[in-house]
Design a protein around this nucleic acid. Structure first.
Lengths: 231, 231
DNA sequence: CCTCCAATTAACTAATTAGTACATAACGCT
DNA sequence: AGCGTTATGTACTAATTAGTTAATTGGAGG
């Protein structure tokens, strides 16, 4: 009794007798692993329950049903990879350096978060029908575009970037290259060999993605400002 | 009796009493639809059976089990989108035109085959573990690289393409842009709006993908040969 | 210290679903 | 025509799996 009271008083203690928020997080963490590994239909509630410190009943208590859990996991996945772009402080760099940094960051960030990538793959298989409501997710991604827009505008104002490049399309291109790199590594490397997916290969790719984007954006007379000099 | 014999004699007749190959194809077609729509675990054998002209029993008779069917469907998917590149007769075009044509073809081809794309997505969710055996699939994709290699070599020999571009990486880049366009259209358009995925948007994208690849490959002093003149 | 509510446990249910047993019909061949 | 083989229809089973019922415990507020 006394012990229990003590534990409650020290909220941060590891062994709280009851810890609703901890239980929720435990479930979400395990469920993300399971859903991203096996998809919505492939994931098993019993398996998730078994891997948590809590029980199956708790999953239903907190999340209602399998789809409810999946949906929260999806939001969680988007939430976890949000932002980051802003911490790059791109406005402190010249446009070329900023754009290169953004490309490499995006590439690396995708690579570092395969569970997120897989959740997005799964959700696309389901035609995004579990995302339709989540305004949250929309808001989370807007900053990425704005950050890119700033860099572009600065580069264009300085006369080193071409006109007519739209932030949304450019974001699409950078995302495509970064996403595919993770999402399709299994089939791609089985077909063409794994050279592109070694650490060296990935560093080369990362550089070439940035270079591709820069060559696309830079005015031909400013290609000299490429990091890979020999324009 | 007489009728049956007649039907057998005219193999192409629509109402063959027994038609093993037709049954196989019927199953494969329906199964591809089902697997690409719902994934491996999400697909239901009963549902597939219901949509075929035949019965569940036949599925097991011809394909053994669910995974066996899935695997054949996967091979089928790769088979159906194979080739094509060769029919472009790229060697009859100058390197710039050839590369542009290849990019646009790849982009359009992916777009025209969403079921294939979805099968590849599903297979990647499963870490490609159903492809490991299929040497067939590997062979099917080699020509794409070779075709690209030829174009690259010609462009480099003519002094209009940069050195140091590798066919495999370039293929990876073209694939990434073309694949992502289909695979992630659901989530992307939910987050950023559907402008990129209208017919007009897609035509613009297709052009910009080709342009991006060309700007990456062309030597700066030959950017003038871009289809989108105002270099 | 008692009471009410949120949190938790354990065992159970109902439906779905992959896979099968068994009988039978059509075909190819001689 | 007869026979072995390939193909097919019907009905069943065994296991899995999402979701529930009902009872219990801990703790915060009065």
């Amino acid at each position: 009794m006394k012990q229990a009271t003590d534990l409650v008083k020290s909220r941060d203690a590891k062994t709280a007798v009851r810890d609703p928020e901890g239980v929720r997080r435990d479930i979400l963490t395990v469920a993300m692993e399971e859903f991203s590994q096996n998809g919505l239909s492939g994931a098993r509630i019993d398996e998730i329950a078994a891997r948590t410190k809590t029980s199956k009943r708790m999953i239903y208590y907190y999340f209602g049903d399998k789809e409810g859990l999946y949906q929260r996991v999806l939001e969680e996945a988007y939430g976890k990879v949000r932002g980051g772009e802003h911490d790059l402080e791109l406005d402190r760099l010249d446009p070329v350096a900023a754009l290169e940094k953004l490309c490499r960051f995006t590439f690396d960030h995708h690579r570092a978060n395969p569970a997120f990538i897989r959740m997005v793959m799964v959700e696309n298989i389901h035609h995004g029908r579990h995302m339709q409501m989540s305004k949250t997710i929309r808001d989370l991604n807007q900053p990425a575009i704005e950050e890119l827009e700033n860099v572009l505008r600065r580069g264009q104002a300085a006369g080193i970037f071409r006109q007519g490049i739209t932030p949304l399309e450019l974001h699409w291109q950078i995302s495509a290259l970064s996403f595919f790199n993770v999402s399709n590594s299994a089939t791609f490397s089985l077909i063409f060999g794994g050279d592109l997916f070694t650490d060296e290969g990935q560093q080369r790719l990362s550089g070439h993605v940035a270079e591709m984007v820069l060559r696309y954006v830079l005015r031909p007379d400013h290609l000299g400002s490429l990091p890979t000099e020999r324009a």
